[in-house]
Simulated assay, not measured.
Amino acid sequence: MKSFLFRLYLAWMKFRARFTTMEDNTIVVLNGSGRSGSNGYAFYKWLLVNHPEFNTTLVEPWPSSHLKWETWQKIGAARYVITTHQPFKVRKHQINVQLWHGVPLKRMGIMANNTKYRDNKRNEKLWHKTADIVASSSDLYETLMSACMAIETKKYHKIGFPRLDLLDSPVISKKQLLKDLFKTEDDQAQIGIYMPTFRYELEDKTIMDKIKEGNFFAFEDFDGERLNEELKRRHQYLIVKLHPYEMCLFSAFKSNYSNIAFLNNDYLFDHDYDLYELLGDTDFLMTDFSSIYFDYLHLNKPIVFVTNFLKQYEKTRGLLMGPYSEITPGISVNSEQELINHLDHLDNQQIANRRLYWLHLTSQVKGPYCEKVFKYMTQEYRG
């Protein structure tokens, strides 16, 4: 019922916004990705610095039923509407630039095990009618996205993803990041970041209960103090960046870890950072089924894959490629003990070669990416 009423609200506001006069030098970024690697936010920040002649507005969170009418007027007046999730525009002659939020590893749309036929057909129609430019990084990306969303090939344009511009030039130094999050200085520091996918959709209460208790890995053998000591011995520091929903569950947990810090959206919003503006300072990534690993390949640094819910995830939602061991260029761990056993040996030449293989498969475009997106949508796109 809520979904139906929200669609009704969007339809009504779109209708009203159509009567706003459209202006050619106006861009609206509808950001549904927060600060956790948002192509929209990265592009917005770049536009403010490099193209002040354009009137650019950031709308977040998106979608929302709490937007002011003045914001809807700006959406209606925009010549270019930039989206990070589902395509959107209020009138035919607007140009929707779909940046999406990563190379997909998890099944979506018609490919997923946990979606509804009616919703899938609605989404297919939405992409067909509304998306004008779909930013792409590779042939593989286009194949995966079309398998899920039935996007026509003519909509794809290999212009890359704006957030990748942020990886090579961190907004603060590694020393400052260590000071901000761990309140320490360490010239030997290795900083890792753990970013799991949205585990709530596994519909397993026991997982959520573990997270509430502070077991952010949801390992059966989790011992936070022990892990902290093992990291400390090696001058390793672990940033934990959970999905916002999981972070809310976790908020009541108080820790005194010296080498484990929890990064929430408050830190990012307070400093006007996107997570990707900090990733370049890290030395390794830990994830499970998140597509962030495809982007992290650009840094050519070690990746650790956490597999304790692999079978469950494959059954509940599914992955687009497999076997998992063949598509993940890094060490896999299923428990805290396995993780500790690998902390001294996170990388080797064979793994590095596999990272390059997957980088070449998923990225056929060279940066700067923001510039490519802007040039294509304003100068080269012919409709």
Rank of each mutant, 00 (worst) to 15 (best):
G109A: 12
A77G: 14
T115G: 02
I95K: 02
N96Q: 04
H101A: 02
A78D: 00
V103I: 15
W100C: 05
I75R: 11
R118N: 03
P87R: 14
P87T: 01
V81Q: 01
G109P: 04
N114H: 15
I75V: 14
R79K: 14
Q98F: 11
V103P: 09
N120Q: 13
V97K: 09
N113L: 13
L105H: 13
G109T: 03
N113Q: 13
Q94A: 05
N120I: 15
V90W: 03
V81K: 01
I95S: 02
P104Y: 10
Q86P: 00
I110A: 07
Y80K: 00
H85Q: 07
L105A: 14
M111T: 11
G76D: 06
Q98R: 09
K116T: 14
M108D: 05
K74N: 15
R91S: 15
I82M: 01
R107E: 11
L99Y: 02
V103F: 15
P104T: 07
L105T: 06
L99N: 05
K92D: 12
N114K: 05
V81E: 02
Q98A: 15
V81P: 11
W100P: 09
G76H: 05
T115H: 06
V90E: 08
H85C: 08
K89I: 06
I95M: 01
F88N: 04
Q73G: 01
H101T: 00
N120T: 12
G102Q: 09
K116P: 00
F88I: 11
Q73N: 12
P104A: 05
V90M: 10
N114C: 05
A112F: 01
Y117I: 10
P87Y: 03
K89V: 07
G102D: 07
V97T: 08
G102N: 13
R91C: 11
F88Q: 11
K89Y: 04
A77C: 08
